[in-house]
Design a protein around this nucleic acid. Structure first.
Length: 288
DNA sequence: ACGCCTACCTGCTTGC
DNA sequence: TGCAAGCAGGTAGGCG
């Protein structure tokens, strides 16, 4: 399900619901979803810790936890909801459907539940040091200060990959997925098969603006709900209706009216306007 | 560095 | 109706 705007929405909605709560217990029924530490050690490692804050980094939800004991070290609970994960905070006695696979008990009698049809979601408890290492391997936050036009230009010029692939590479740029990559490229009028090092200065500028604007708009609309996604309040986001190309194959381009096309790049559906987003020149053709 | 493949999972939609 | 194939917002690991 979610990309940066959806995870940001979850973090914002979860924050007031869980900050200040003590985790009283942990339960799970699909050990593959517990990434770290060993599933057998997980419950003991989270029990007794206070949820101090809820933030987002890339597509991860980051819960800062207090020490487990008076003398213990703080910890970081990291959750990736991936394709179909949803987080709910509900009373302990609320019915639990079969797709709930991880549950953290809270000391006021509610539970934080990960409901995840495809079981791709992952939960990890890290030391601060481990969390720094994992999150440090990710690229810059596209809405952060460090992601300047200058920095984006520098990153792009060093790479020869296709734009679509690169925008979705979490080590290159953190938080963009299939929806917002297609939307940003449409807005920037760049073909998804263009290579990073082929962009003119004006094109780099358009893409920089486009990436940031599609993400900001996504957040403002509380995310794009295509099928599964809901925020932590259980409500779908409103951004799907604002998407210009994603899953709009055959519909008219909002700029020029040409039918939106679908191709596959890196095994992912890619939607674009064949007129507004012209094909890259193949090798050997004279440049414009 | 880069592209491509497979895996991980379940459920919905499409086409015969 | 049944059944198989194709599709899905993500990512890790392996190969060439």
């Amino acid at each position: 399900m979610p990309e940066l705007p959806e995870v940001e929405t979850i973090a914002r909605e979860l924050r007031p619901l869980v900050v200040g709560q003590i985790i009283t217990d942990a339960w799970f029924d699909w050990p593959n979803q517990i990434k770290h530490p060993a599933p057998s050690a997980f419950a003991g490692a989270v029990r007794g810790r206070e949820i101090v804050s809820v933030e987002r980094r890339a597509k991860w939800l980051i819960f800062s936890l207090g020490p487990a004991l008076a003398t213990g070290e703080p910890a970081v609970l990291a959750i990736q909801v991936k394709m179909t994960g949803q987080l709910d905070v509900v009373p302990r006695d609320a019915p639990r459907d079969k797709h709930v696979h991880v549950v953290l008990g809270l000391d006021d009698g509610r539970e934080l539940r990960l409901r995840d049809t495809r079981k791709f979601g992952r939960v990890a408890l890290y030391t601060a040091h481990e969390a720094d290492a994992v999150l440090g391997a990710l690229g810059p936050e596209p809405l952060g200060e460090a992601f300047s036009l200058r920095e984006f230009r520098r990153l792009l010029r060093a790479r020869r990959a296709r734009l679509k692939t690169l925008l979705m590479d979490q080590a290159f740029l953190a938080g963009v997925g299939n929806i917002y990559a297609d939307e940003a490229l449409w807005r920037a009028r760049l073909h998804p098969l263009r290579t990073a090092d082929s962009l003119s200065e004006a094109e780099v500028r358009r893409l920089h603006r486009a990436v940031r604007s599609v993400l900001r708009q996504g957040i403002a609309n509380r995310g794009s709900s295509i099928s599964d996604y809901v925020g932590a309040d259980g409500e779908p986001g409103d951004n799907a209706e604002q998407l210009a190309v994603y899953r709009r194959t055959g519909e008219p381009c909002l700029r020029c009216g040409r039918e939106i096309a679908r191709i596959v790049i890196g095994q992912r559906s890619t939607h674009f306007c064949p007129r507004c987003q012209r094909e890259p020149l193949s090798a050997g053709e004279p440049s414009r």
